[in-house]
Computed example of a mutant assay.
Amino acid sequence: MFKLFRKKSEVEKMESNFKKLMKEWHELSSINRKLSDEKYAMAQALLPRIEELKKKHEAH
């Protein structure tokens, strides 16, 4: 309940965006392969940044 009013961290925002892109990728995979591949590439591009932010967060 208390998380309801808490702002999302940058990592949480990026993870949410990643999940959204992966969902769109899956939905488009049988409809439009080109657009599906673009969504997948966008999602994969977020992974290194997410991992980097997680490492920084763990270090602190």
Score class of each variant (00 low, 15 high):
31 I>S: 09
44 Q>A: 15
6 R>F: 03
4 L>V: 15
57 H>W: 10
48 P>H: 08
31 I>M: 10
3 K>N: 11
58 E>F: 09
55 K>N: 07
11 V>M: 08
15 E>G: 03
57 H>M: 15
58 E>P: 11
41 A>M: 14
40 Y>V: 15
6 R>T: 01
5 F>H: 00
35 L>F: 14
38 E>A: 12
52 E>R: 03
32 N>Q: 08
27 E>F: 02
9 S>D: 00
49 R>N: 11
36 S>M: 06
56 K>T: 05
20 K>R: 05
30 S>D: 06
42 M>Q: 13
52 E>A: 04
4 L>Q: 09
21 L>R: 05
18 F>S: 02
53 L>D: 06
57 H>Q: 12
18 F>A: 00
39 K>N: 01
43 A>W: 02
42 M>Y: 11
58 E>M: 15
48 P>K: 04
9 S>N: 00
55 K>H: 07
46 L>G: 13
46 L>S: 10
21 L>V: 11
58 E>A: 13
12 E>W: 04
13 K>Y: 11
12 E>Q: 01
46 L>A: 12
21 L>W: 01
30 S>M: 09
33 R>L: 15
16 S>M: 08
27 E>N: 05
50 I>G: 05
51 E>H: 10
49 R>D: 11
35 L>D: 15
54 K>W: 06
58 E>C: 12
45 A>N: 15
42 M>G: 13
23 K>D: 04
35 L>H: 15
50 I>N: 06
16 S>V: 07
33 R>V: 14
12 E>T: 04
51 E>W: 07
50 I>C: 07
22 M>Q: 03
5 F>S: 02
23 K>N: 04
6 R>Q: 03
9 S>R: 01
49 R>Y: 09
34 K>G: 13
27 E>L: 06
31 I>A: 13
44 Q>K: 15
15 E>W: 00
47 L>F: 09
32 N>W: 08
14 M>E: 03
11 V>C: 08
41 A>S: 15
39 K>Y: 00
28 L>S: 09
13 K>G: 15
30 S>N: 09
25 W>H: 04
3 K>M: 12
21 L>D: 05
28 L>P: 00
48 P>E: 13
14 M>D: 02
56 K>N: 02
29 S>I: 07
36 S>I: 03
32 N>T: 08
44 Q>T: 14
16 S>D: 03
30 S>E: 08
24 E>H: 01
56 K>D: 00
33 R>G: 14
16 S>K: 07
54 K>R: 11
44 Q>S: 12
25 W>M: 01
23 K>Y: 02
14 M>F: 08
50 I>R: 00
21 L>N: 02
4 L>P: 12
27 E>P: 01
8 K>A: 10
52 E>I: 06
53 L>W: 01
42 M>A: 15
49 R>S: 09
29 S>F: 03
19 K>T: 05
32 N>H: 06
3 K>D: 14
46 L>T: 10
18 F>M: 07
56 K>G: 05
55 K>T: 07
5 F>G: 03
5 F>A: 05
58 E>K: 13
52 E>T: 06
15 E>P: 05
26 H>A: 07
42 M>W: 12
26 H>F: 04
42 M>K: 14
55 K>R: 12
21 L>G: 11
54 K>V: 07
3 K>C: 10
44 Q>C: 13
37 D>P: 11
37 D>Q: 13
30 S>Q: 08
36 S>Y: 01
52 E>F: 08
14 M>Y: 02
38 E>Q: 09
49 R>C: 14
29 S>Q: 05
34 K>S: 12
14 M>H: 02
